[in-house]
Each structure stands twice: as structure tokens, then as C-alpha cells.
Amino acid sequence: MHDDDGTVIKDDPADWITAIAMREDRAAFAALFAFYAPRIKTMLMRAGASADSGEDIAQETLLTVWRKAAYFDPSRASAAAWIYTIARNIRIDRLRQLQRAKLYALQETIESEEPERPDAALSSTQRADRVRAALGQIPQEQVQVLKLSFFEGRAHGDIAQQLDLPLGTVKSRLRLAMNRLRHLLGDLS
């Protein structure tokens, strides 16, 4: 992980989450907030949220991290992946409330104990490094589609329109990316 000057930060954000879970460590919360809240805000704004709404969701995400810290399993996800899923679920909940749909982030309902444990010997930071390295091995055109989908929250149809591609091409790029990621990261999750 790098801070804003590009300096390598030695701390593992997973340790901050663990410190919150073990002893309600406010300094660890402040460190997590300083790194992730501004990045979540960027992600939400790229997905079309206003600055206020992006700020609000970033706040709620970090408060949820505080409350749910005990549920974080560093043998299963990197801190970043876990925080990403929390921000995503809050975004979905907000959208559904706007649509007044009786739906919410179903992503939360499917978590259950897996019989097969992933490789628990890897630290959260090692996991994050592996994912970054894997993304470096994927063709740029596939990474572009992953970014639009996962970071900017765009539906596949919108991505096709934006890149002026057939929908089938967007889907096949995702499939090719997934095949590669399964191969490179299959042991991580």
C-alpha cells in the first residue's frame, strides 16, 4: 500500500481492523479512515454520486467497519476487499431506497462458512499485492472494463455504450478476465 506521496506504508490495514475488533482502537480507526474514506468518496463520485453523498457513504462505510470489525476474517479477504464490499452494499441500499424497492444488498445474505478454507498463510497485504500483480497481467482492455464495472459501478449496457462496443464484447472481456483471475488468484478466496 502507498500513501499519497507514494511512500510505502508498512502497516497492514488488516491489523487496524483487528485492533478495532480486539480493543476498540480509535487510533487504528483514524488510520483506516484517513486512507479509505477519501478513496471511497472518489469511487462513489466516479459512480455518479454527488460529493455530499460520496462523503456520506464514505462515513457510513467506516462506521460499519468499526461496528463489524469482529466479523472481518483476514484469512478470507484483504482489508481493501472487505471494505469495498461494505461500501458497495451501502451504495446498493441507498439506490434501492431511492427506488423504494423492497430490496437491499443481497450480497450480505449469502455469506456462510465455507467448508474449504483458502490459503490462510497469506497476510491481507500479501493478498492485496497478489491481486494488484494479477491485474497487471491482464490485457488493458479487460482491466478497463473491470474498472468501469467495479470502481465506477456501471452496468454492462452502459459500459458497452460508453466504449462503443457490442454488449457481447463487454461480457466476453469480463469472462476472459475472470478466467485469468481464477487461474492467478484461485487460492486467495
Partner: peptide
């Protein structure tokens, strides 16, 4: 979960606002 790791990596690399 593999896709969620991708989301996490993109979040780590994001420019802060």
C-alpha cells in the same frame, strides 16, 4: 469473492478525494 478482491485492489489504487 475473486471479483470482490478486484474491487478492493481498485479501491486501494484510487486517488483520494
Amino acid at each position: 469473492r475473486t471479483f470482490e478482491h478486484v474491487g478492493g485492489a481498485l479501491l486501494d489504487e484510487a486517488a483520494p478525494t
